[in-house]
Write a protein that binds this DNA or RNA. Structure first.
Lengths: 246, 246
DNA sequence: CGTGGAATTGACACCCGTCAATGACTGTGG
DNA sequence: CCACAGTCATTGACGGGTGTCAATTCCACG
């Protein structure tokens, strides 16, 4: 996909050392699967990792393809989504710094992934990663914890999709995004919204028009101040009350 | 909850041996986390497991309570659900033989669990189970795989809740239930539906009336034959086409 | 300053939710 | 054995929230 120049002069050991340096200085280590791992485990992880950079709207994974790789998002934002034959789309997650891509994966990808903004990722071969589990059980534990966490978030989203009104969905969406950005130490006032209204709609089970109207309602109600590419939470308590349904 | 007679004559070792026998003869071993585990791992699992039997509509877990236990369902069916303050309910999963309960759990349960039909479960202390992971990494791997699988199913449900029509939801629901029953080797023609219309509605993000009407439509279209407590798939291909949206 | 896509807003339609009545089934007590 | 009540499923009438279609505005970019 993204061709990498491979000068013959660089030997395999050099490449490995180079990735190790890159990982050692990685500023998202504390957020990703690397957190809390012993030094040796990191070195081995580094040796099998490939850094990727994706421009906005780049295709990273296509649903149904053999799942050879897993990824860690190190910067920017990507979306994972499912398509129906007639074009209906459900975005099952927006992933950002520290998120792991591929937890839900069997032998084939269950969703497509595209970048929202420009994004950076670390790619791992699934086989090589799973081979590391034998030597470094902490890695597998970390992945299981990430999977548990994602499952809990998925269940929150089910409640949203199955039972919440449009305004409640937008309120919940904004609060969740805010919390996530806080977790990774990103600025969240105003809250950046790198995704389009259409993407928000396909995440929340709505249409762009309904998303737009819901934003307007929240703005008129004094809960938020909304621009096109960002939003500010004005009344956190009120927004929470709305999001949770009374 | 369910008092267990504890004659003083039975010493701890006897109790352990008794659970080991119970597990060794357990007829759902191949379906649960026990599948593929070495003998020693099973013995240790057996030692920390407690069998439970629940009548229909029994409360097993309450959302927000400290998560001290995890469970394996060995028979019957239970539902996991989230409630909103005003009573809106989203069932995030129906669990049956072989399903693991507690994968999505942090320090507190993220959902309530109640039995649908009468059900049997194996209960484990979370702490004791996680302590086993150090000695038996295969257990942790098995749990991670279960979590991955559940995550993929959760994403399927997101597509359903966010984008499918009532009839497509019912069709998808019937096909998924059928596949699950096939997996565990249960009879699925006719397909038993132990849950009420209200429970189906709260799983699919609908109302009981809409569920009822959708069943009627599918029956009139010749895709299924539906009774109250079961349904037969008459036109598998047609039902699949409807479920997947053309 | 002009252009094109995205976002917003409005009018209208429709699917599904709400409310209500009827029917089917189960268990209970006479 | 039957009458009865209670729960659940079904069906109908109606209304509302959201989708659909269309027009307008906004904004980024050339």
């Amino acid at each position: 996909m993204i061709p990498q120049p491979q000068p013959q002069a660089l030997k395999r050991d050099d490449l490995i050392r180079r990735s190790q340096d890159r990982c050692r200085s990685c500023d998202v280590r504390a957020l990703s699967i690397c957190d809390g791992q012993p030094e040796e485990s990191l070195l081995r992880l580094a040796a099998i990792s490939t850094p990727l950079h994706a421009p906005p709207r780049a295709v990273l994974i296509e649903e149904g393809e053999p799942a050879q790789h897993v990824f860690t998002v190190t910067a920017g934002m990507v979306k994972a989504f499912k398509l129906m034959p007639d074009g209906r789309r459900q975005i099952v997650g927006f992933l950002t710094t520290g998120d792991f891509l591929g937890l839900a994966t069997a032998d084939r990808y269950g969703y497509s992934v595209e970048s929202v903004s420009s994004a950076a990722l670390c790619r791992f071969s699934r086989g090589q990663l799973e081979a590391l589990f034998d030597d470094f059980p902490g890695l597998e534990r970390r992945l299981r914890q990430k999977a548990s966490h994602e499952l809990a978030e998925a269940q929150d989203l089910m409640l949203l999709l199955g039972r919440k009104t449009a305004q409640e969905r937008i309120a919940t969406f904004l609060l969740r995004l805010r919390r996530r950005l806080e977790e990774i130490g990103a600025p969240c006032d105003p809250l950046p919204l790198p995704m389009s209204r259409a993407e928000i709609a396909d995440y929340l089970g709505l249409t762009t028009e309904t998303v737009s109207r819901a934003f307007t309602h929240l703005r008129r109600a004094g809960l938020i101040a909304a621009g096109t590419g960002d939003a500010s939470v004005l009344d956190l308590v009120g927004l929470r009350r709305l999001a949770d349904g009374d």
